[in-house]
């Protein structure tokens, strides 16, 4: 089907002809009133307070064993658990502790074009992340499988202290714009709606619970 590209672009050229080309001068000022401290402790405090306000939780764990404890305490024995491959590769001890007492499946068991219904059964998903943003309590993710994190009722994220960004200013930079792959996404608190009389309901299509654990290295 022939599209209207030339017609539309010509119409735009006619409209903007003679008008000034405006360049927004890039202000370096941050629109934030409250500056967030440089150290991890103050960034974590902000991240945690933002995420808690949305109904999520944030922790700092000393060891992988502590991290696995935190998760095991939150999921019942019969929970179906999905573990992203980056977790399996990067956190071996954590993964074995988790799978000792809980049934889990790994990303590697699924190939391209897998059956959606097979991942719709997971109650929980465990994944790493690219970054976290203290200002908003957000997690920045890029995964090789989009659906487990989008469908599970609980999402557990393991992060490194070094991944904590103070504000959105540090996220929307070249460092992140050059990502490889088809998508980058931010998760800020549980999936939610207020479409019925503005009453907040969480866990609409995605996670109702979001738990982020920062591992100290």
């Amino acid at each position: 089907m022939e599209d209207d590209r030339e017609k539309i672009l010509a119409s735009i050229r006619r409209g903007i002809r003679g008008s000034d080309r405006i360049s927004a001068d890039r202000s370096s000022k941050s629109p934030l009133f409250a500056r967030i401290g440089n150290d991890f402790k103050s960034r974590f405090a902000k991240f945690s307070s933002e995420l808690s306000a949305l109904g999520g939780e944030a922790f700092v764990a000393q060891t992988e064993a502590d991290a696995s404890e935190l998760i095991l305490a939150r999921i019942e024995p019969n929970t179906s658990l999905f573990i992203y491959d980056d977790i399996r590769t990067n956190y071996g001890a954590f993964t074995s502790l988790l799978t000792e007492s809980r049934q889990a499946r790994f990303g590697i068991e699924f190939g391209p074009g897998y059956d959606k219904r097979e991942v719709a059964i997971f109650d929980s998903a465990v994944s790493g992340c690219l970054a976290c943003v203290a200002e908003t309590g957000s997690i920045v993710m890029k995964t090789d499988m989009r659906l487990p994190a989008a469908l599970a009722a609980r999402l557990f994220i393991l992060a490194k202290e070094s991944q904590m960004l103070p504000t959105l200013d540090e996220l929307f930079t070249d460092r992140f714009s050059n990502f490889e792959g088809s998508n980058l996404f931010l998760v800020t608190g549980p999936s939610r709606t207020a479409d019925i009389e503005k009453e907040l309901v969480t866990g609409v299509h995605g996670p109702k619970e979001i738990i982020v654990i920062f591992l100290q290295h």
Binding site: E135, T136, S182, N183, L184, L186, T188, R192, G206
Partner: peptide, 10 residues
């Protein structure tokens, strides 16, 4: 402050 999801689709 931010919506629950922001997807940057490439």
């Amino acid at each position: 402050k931010l919506t629950s999801y922001v997807s940057l689709l490439r």
